[in-house]
Design a binder for these strands. Structure first.
Lengths: 259, 259
DNA sequence: ATTACACCTTTACGCTGCGTCAAGGTCAAG
DNA sequence: CTTGACCTTGACGCAGCGTAAAGGTGTAAT
């Protein structure tokens, strides 16, 4: 397959100027030029462009990209594993940011307050995550998961014991939810106990508690497939059940929920 | 609470230069200056900076950010809903990119091939997603979810009927997995049928099939909490069971799996 | 055969969002 | 009263393109 600048540009979703610039700096040169000087790209160049865009997406500058992919030990598949890890890290950071937004919304709407430094969680987290990314694997190999948990505990500003407590409470919420589910009634005593447990669990990671924030998070559990799947493990429709229980618990019911 | 440039900068994870620049362009001016001209920021400025960073994270240029947050109809909480949606969209795009990397790795390692235009899924998707973001809500309100499904089908290059088939197959995989789980044996006939169904399901979104890619994806189901939770819905340890079944099915067992 | 039009080329200047000196004033601790 | 960590303004530099200018090319339709 052969492509002119514009064809390749359209396929990859970049501008022709970008391709010409990449040629100019020697990052991606066309396979050849035709008799009138037109740039012609082949499938090797397509692959290379794909790689470049992967790395660009990760925020690497073009110079670094060039070094990475022109590295003699760069063998393609293996090199793609790195961006994969980076992408996963990015998603983790995004999750934090989203949680932060959720919490900020609730804090702004409700009466809860947020410590100033809490407001930048997820932004600075990027730095921590980058570290984790760089050293995480080595550490994991050397010292096993226990060390990682320690590190995670640190990240959450917890001591190890607290982190253990946090983890076990997490499981307790799930098992209580499973029980409560069977009653089928979000206002049942069991369901309300589950909501209370969930609040307790929350207090490990949230600086202050507010009904609005709690209710908001519960709604997010339903909206977000990820969280939904997690709580649906407890029982069919577990996320929705938990949300309803929390709505009753916080006394927010229908009103003030996220549309 | 009052902050000097550096204190605020450290808290927010930006440089002092950035804060001075934001002052220079009138994006974020300090609450006041002390007798010797030092910039002093208050809690209002902290909140504003947080907002700015949210929008910056979304890729908005500073000019747009200024317009957004200086909009008279900007009331804080409501304005945060937008970045929330955008962040969710970004995560969806990231997921696509990650899937793309997974697939590219398998394609490179295995013998499967990838059509050139497949290689840029997740990059261009950004554009589609941005559209969805801009018009998605309106459409959703006006025409209901059926239209959205149509649109999703289009995004996946499917006709609606195919999309329905795709969706129902998805459910079938889950229910077969639940049954197969009870045998406890990944090489049991039921488990192998589940793997076969999963392969069939895959063929809807993947241009070509390769054992390596299939096995690679199965491993990802275990590694990624999100997918793990989804398949664990079928039964305890569903993701791992499915992976093992697929490993047997593809004949890849231990070898060649992602470490 | 020529005209239209969408493509291609190089050259070059401009922009954003800061990083990075440079040259100097301020403030609290020792 | 000195040291060192802070603060100020001003200026230049840089990546990664966007954008316009001035011109050549390919091909389809008149």
């Amino acid at each position: 397959m052969e492509y002119t600048v514009q064809k390749l540009a359209r396929m990859a979703g970049v501008s022709t100027r970008t391709l010409r610039y990449y040629d100019e700096i020697g990052l991606l040169e066309p396979a050849r030029k035709n008799s009138s000087g037109y740039r012609i790209y082949g499938s090797k160049e397509v692959d290379k462009l794909q790689q470049i865009l992967f790395y660009r997406e990760l925020g690497l500058d073009l110079d670094s990209i060039q070094k990475v992919i022109s590295n003699p030990s760069f063998d393609g598949p293996a090199a793609l594993r790195m961006p994969r890890e980076k992408l996963l890290a990015r998603r983790r950071q995004l999750d934090l940011l989203i949680t932060n937004v959720e919490y900020t919304i609730s804090a702004a709407e409700g009466k809860s307050t947020m410590a100033d430094n809490e407001k930048f969680k997820g932004f600075k987290q990027k730095l921590i995550d980058d570290n984790e990314q760089q050293y995480g694997e080595e550490v994991r190999g050397k010292y096993g998961d226990a060390t990682i948990d320690k590190s995670n505990a640190k990240m959450l500003n917890m001591r190890e014991e607290k982190y253990e407590e946090f983890k076990s409470l997490e499981k307790e919420v799930l098992s209580k939810l499973a029980e409560a589910c069977e009653t089928g009634d979000p206002s049942s005593e069991l369901a309300q106990k589950t909501a209370a447990l969930h609040k307790e669990w929350l207090s490990f990671t949230w600086p202050t508690y507010s009904k609005e924030a709690h209710a908001g998070l519960a709604q997010m559990y339903v909206d977000d497939e990820r969280f939904a799947a997690y709580y649906d493990k407890a029982c069919e429709g577990g996320a929705k059940f938990l949300r309803d229980a929390i709505l009753v618990y916080t006394g927010m019911e229908q009103e003030n929920s996220f549309e």
